[in-house]
């Protein structure tokens, strides 16, 4: 397939069928280093399914998915051997689940959760692993004194920040986020959004973020894809899509929110 030489991720005609008519019906896009792509749409539009296809949590029924790794090698993600795929998933990639409980080990301390990627990639020095965990807890604004507490003792917002630290500790290049602020109180959301915004900018991450919240999309995303019925019906710069929506569905979506 054709991938722009400077892109980090390229999807072509990705498809997935749940067997009930829902799913993803041919989605193509390119993502560049430092690019934040928002995917918006209603429940059932296929946006979370698309994210799972990108993250390897679901295997597509068709299409192609290419990734250019840190060394510049072009990888066919759909044909990658399992060992290589897993290694990639815990080094260069991140996946932030909507429910932090799906992305954390609840029986393991905060420090263990953050340190896992380091240990999974050969980290064998307890002191250094712990220091990294401490640094990352601080960066996501969790008190270092909580390093030996379990996530079950954390609030929802803290759990979500812990999940983010757990992903970012390995220095990923591409992070996929599924409604990262969903299910949180509004004030907690604002804090998390600001944190995500500054981390993404400071680390130069490429991000694909799924959200139904156009305010979140406005704040975080450079570009948007609007999905409906498993297809991308409109895409462009975030302000283009939100301030000059062209498709009937996008106009409905934008007009349904208060001051996005």
């Amino acid at each position: 397939m054709t991938m722009p030489p400077d892109a980090i991720l390229s999807a072509r005609d990705l498809r997935f069928d749940y067997g009930n008519g829902q799913g993803v019906r041919g989605v193509s896009f390119d993502l560049w280093p430092g690019d934040v792509l928002g995917i918006v749409g209603e429940s059932g539009s296929g946006k979370t399914t698309l994210l799972k296809l990108l993250g390897g949590l679901l295997a597509p029924s068709g299409g192609s998915l290419s990734y250019r790794d840190a060394s510049g090698e072009l990888l066919d993600l759909l044909a990658l051997p399992e060992a290589r795929r897993r290694h990639l998933a815990r080094t260069e990639l991140g996946f932030v689940h909507q429910n932090p409980r799906d992305g954390l080990r609840l029986a393991v301390t905060a420090g263990g959760n953050v340190g896992e990627r380091l240990m999974a990639t050969g980290g064998r020095h307890y002191g250094r692993i712990r220091q990294s965990a401490l640094d990352w807890l601080t960066r996501v604004e969790i008190d270092g004194a909580r390093i030996d507490d379990r996530p079950t003792q954390f609030s929802g917002g803290m759990q979500q920040r812990l999940q983010i630290a757990r992903n970012l500790v390995s220095g990923p290049r591409l992070v996929l986020m599924d409604e990262p602020t969903g299910g949180l109180d509004v004030s907690v959301q604002a804090r998390l959004l600001d944190l995500l915004r500054s981390l993404v900018a400071d680390l130069g991450l490429s991000v694909v973020i799924v959200t139904h919240d156009l305010g979140v999309a406005r704040l975080l995303a450079d570009r948007l894809m609007v999905m409906q019925g498993g297809r991308v019906i409109e895409e462009g710069l975030t302000d283009q899509v939100l301030d000059d929506p062209r498709e009937p569905y996008t106009q409905l979506l934008v007009s349904s929110v208060l001051a996005a």
Partner: peptide, 22 residues
Amino acid sequence: RALHALGDYGVMQVELYEDIAI
């Protein structure tokens, strides 16, 4: 079985980390 096949044993190290931490 997949973890054994891939020699993917980080999670065991996490278990030992937890012991030291606690």
